[in-house]
């Protein structure tokens, strides 16, 4: 589903260049749940953003469902419609109601009829457990509710892959669970997911594979059992000691 080859992303800043992603090669199979962990600044977000073209990578190849993002003839808008993304800060549209948040891109990108879009939106809101507040503006919702709406908004496009960038990091502790539950359910249903998170419990329970990144590189890669019980690399051990 996702194949990346030696992806490099260099930021040119005033004080020099930052190799945020430094040669990442990764294959994610259809239906697989990959969790990326690593210290702050290790390039997790940047890599994730490269996967749906929010960031242009400097070198390498990313193939989503066979489409090479490095190819200039590939229509990025079409690719993005197939790759849902959930952000740390939710990024719901504050001037639209919850329902409108879910229908806007369905009209614009999928060209669905009003009826189709509404049926889809209502079914998804039910799935993520938002029943009553569909005509409210997002600012009236709690953080956990907002993030669940954001997940539903991404799902409304029927994506083939879902990317999550620290979806629970901006939430109050008591709301983390409700969002993780929705993500677990998605994983069970066979969604292909790439999740950047600091929730080690989630990684242990749901991930098919855990990737540990540091300084833009994949340092350790393996099943959750392997990663949490017997990591090979010193840096991974150090990281686990800090977070567990």
């Amino acid at each position: 589903m996702i194949k990346t080859e030696n992806v490099i992303k260099v930021f040119h800043t005033g004080s020099g260049e930052v190799r945020a992603v430094d040669g990442v090669t990764l294959h994610v199979k259809s239906g697989e749940v990959v969790v990326i962990v690593g210290p702050s600044g290790s390039g997790k977000s940047t890599f994730l953003r490269c996967l749906n073209g929010l960031e242009n990578f400097s070198e390498g190849h990313i193939r989503i469902d066979g489409q090479d993002l490095a190819d200039r003839h590939v229509n990025m808008n079409k690719v993005r419609a197939e790759v849902g993304m959930v952000f740390q800060q939710f990024n719901l549209f504050p001037h639209k109601t919850v329902l409108e948040n879910l229908t806007l891109a369905q009209y614009r990108v999928r060209h669905r009829s009003k009826k189709e879009a509404l049926i889809k939106a209502e079914a998804l809101l039910k799935k993520v457990g938002i029943h009553a507040k569909v005509d409210e503006y997002p600012s009236r919702l709690s953080g956990g509710q907002q993030q669940r709406v954001a997940i539903a908004r991404a799902l409304a496009m029927d994506p083939k892959v879902m990317l999550f960038d620290e979806p629970t990091s901006a939430l109050d502790p008591e709301m983390v669970g409700e969002v993780l539950d929705v993500m677990k359910q998605l994983a069970r249903e066979g969604m292909t997911m790439v999740v950047v998170t600091h929730e080690m419990g989630f990684a242990r329970e749901v991930a098919d594979r855990v990737i540990f990144m540091d300084e833009g590189k994949i340092v350790e890669e393996g099943t959750p059992e392997h990663f949490f019980t017997a990591p090979r690399e010193e840096r991974a051990k150090l990281f686990l000691k800090q977070v567990l």
Partner: peptide, 29 residues
């Protein structure tokens, strides 16, 4: 916030739609 345009683009909306439906209505206020 940049996240608004990024959210719209991540849904597959093109830059014109993003401006017209997401950024400009908010900027207008």
């Amino acid at each position: 916030p940049k996240g608004q345009a990024e959210a719209a683009r991540s849904l597959g909306m093109n830059s014109f739609q993003t401006m017209k439906d997401v950024v400009l209505p908010q900027a207008f206020k």
